[in-house]
C-alpha cells in the first residue's frame, strides 16, 4: 500500500487520549496486514509481532496512536458546551475551529467567541481564555442534554490536505506519522533478512503522560526500544538550531534518553545506505515514549527517531511524506542489522 494511503487510513480514526479502546480496531486491522500476530493489551495498546517468537533479539517500536482533544466539562442553560483539554492544547488556536462531539451520536459543533465589533477595546489585544470559549452545536439545550454527557470527548474536524513538494498538512499527524513510519518499516522488512523478534506498538495516552508506553514496555520487556515520534520542523520565526528541516530525513536523537550505541548504529546505517538524516540533540526529557521506556524494569536501551513536523498540536501540522518513508527505511535496515552480540554489547560501558 502506498504511504499516502496508509497515512490517510491512519488519520481516519479519531483517537483522543483515553478513549482509544473504542476506535483502536482500525489499527488492529492495519497491523494484521503486516504482522504475524496482533493483540490489544488492557489499556488499549495495539501490539503487533513480526518475526519468530523467542528470537535472541527482541525489539519494540513505539509510536502513539492518541491525539490531543477536548472534553465536555459543563453544559450551560442555553445549551452551549464548556470544555476542558486533553493533552497540550494551545488555547489561542481554538476560536473558529470545527469540532466533533462524540456523544450518544457524533455531533458537529463550532467554537464560538465574541465578534470584534462587540469586544471591549482591551479585549481585542488579548487571546481568549478557555473559560471564555464554548461550543455551539445549533441544538436546543434540551436536545444537547439528551445527546451529550459530561466527559464526552471532542475531536477537531479532520481536513488533511496535500501541499506542494510532497508536503502534507492536517491534525493528528503527531503521531500518526510515526505509526506510518513503523508500518513502512514492516513493509520494508518483507524485503530484508532479519532475525529479531519485532514488536510494533501503537501506544495509548502519550499526550497525557506517556502512559501507554509505561505498561506496554513493562509487558514486552524488549532488549531494545525505539520510539518513533515527531519533532519540531524548521519554520519562520524559530531559530534553525532548535528545529529540524523538512524533507532532509529522520532526526536521530542523541542525549541522556538515548543509548549511545543505538545512536551510533542508526547513524552508521544511515551513512552506509546513503539515507539522509539529521542529528537531534535532546538535553533532557524527550517528551516521547522513549522517556518512560528507558526506565522500565531494569532499564531498556532506548533510541528515538523523529519526523520533522511544523506547527505541532495545531490542526495544520505540516510534514514531508519523504521523511516518513526515510524513517521507515532506516528502521528496517537497523532491525536487519541486529544480532545477539550487538545486544549484549549494549550492557558494556
Amino acid at each position: 500500500m502506498e504511504l499516502k494511503e496508509t497515512l490517510m487510513e491512519l488519520l481516519s480514526a479519531e483517537m483522543p487520549s483515553g478513549s482509544e479502546v473504542k476506535t483502536n480496531n482500525c489499527l488492529v486491522e492495519i497491523f494484521k496486514r503486516h504482522c504475524d500476530d496482533v493483540r490489544v493489551d488492557k489499556l488499549g495498546n495495539v501490539i503487533g509481532r513480526k518475526g519468530s517468537e523467542n528470537a535472541k533479539v527482541k525489539i519494540m517500536l513505539a509510536a502513539h496512536m492518541d491525539e490531543i482533544g477536548l472534553m465536555v466539562k459543563q453544559i450551560d442553560e442555553r445549551g452551549f458546551i464548556r470544555f476542558s483539554y486533553i493533552g497540550g492544547i494551545d488555547h489561542r488556536i481554538l476560536p473558529a475551529q470545527e469540532v466533533i462531539i462524540h456523544g450518544r451520536e457524533k455531533i458537529l459543533g463550532v467554537i464560538g467567541s465574541k465578534p470584534p465589533h462587540i469586544q471591549e477595546p482591551d479585549e481585542r489585544n488579548k487571546a481568549l481564555k478557555s473559560e471564555d470559549m464554548f461550543i455551539d452545536t445549533g441544538l436546543s439545550a434540551e436536545k444537547v442534554r439528551q445527546l451529550v454527557r459530561i466527559g464526552d470527548v471532542i475531536t477537531f474536524k479532520r481536513k488533511p490536505v496535500e501541499l506542494l513538494n510532497g508536503c502534507f498538512a492536517g491534525n493528528a499527524l503527531d503521531d500518526r506519522a510515526g505509526l506510518a513510519a513503523i508500518i513502512y518499516c514492516l513493509q520494508e522488512l518483507d524485503k530484508l533478512q532479519f532475525s529479531a523478534e519485532v514488536y510494533a506498538v501503537a501506544t495509548v495516552q502519550e499526550e497525557v503522560g506517556l502512559r501507554g508506553a509505561v505498561v506496554s514496555t513493562y509487558h514486552l520487556c524488549p532488549d531494545i526500544g525505539v520510539a518513533v515520534d515527531v519533532c519540531h520542523g524548521n519554520m519562520a520565526d524559530v531559530s534553525e538550531e532548535e528545529t529540524q528541516k523538512l524533507g532532509k530525513g529522520p532526526a536521530i536523537a542523541l542525549g541522556p534518553n538515548i543509548h549511545p550505541k543505538l545512536y551510533e548504529r542508526l547513524k552508521n546505517i544511515a551513512e552506509d545506505y546513503k539515507i539522509p538524516y539529521q542529528v537531534n540533540p535532546e538535553p533532557s526529557a524527550t517528551g516521547t515514549d522513549a522517556w518512560v521506556m528507558q526506565i522500565t524494569k531494569e532499564g531498556i536501551p532506548t533510541a528515538l527517531i523523529s519526523i520533522p513536523l511544523r506547527y505541532m498540536h495545531t490542526t495544520v501540522e505540516t510534514l514531508c511524506l519523504e521523511d516518513i518513508k526515510l524513517s521507515g527505511r532506516l528502521l528496517a535496515l537497523f532491525i536487519s542489522s541486529l544480532e545477539e552480540n550487538f545486544v549484549e554489547g549494549l550492557r558494556c560501558y
Binding site: V215, S216, H219
Partner: peptide, 9 residues
C-alpha cells in the same frame, strides 16, 4: 494503579 505492571483498567 492503572499504570501498574502491564496495566490495570
Amino acid at each position: 494503579i492503572h499504570l501498574t505492571k502491564d496495566g490495570v483498567p
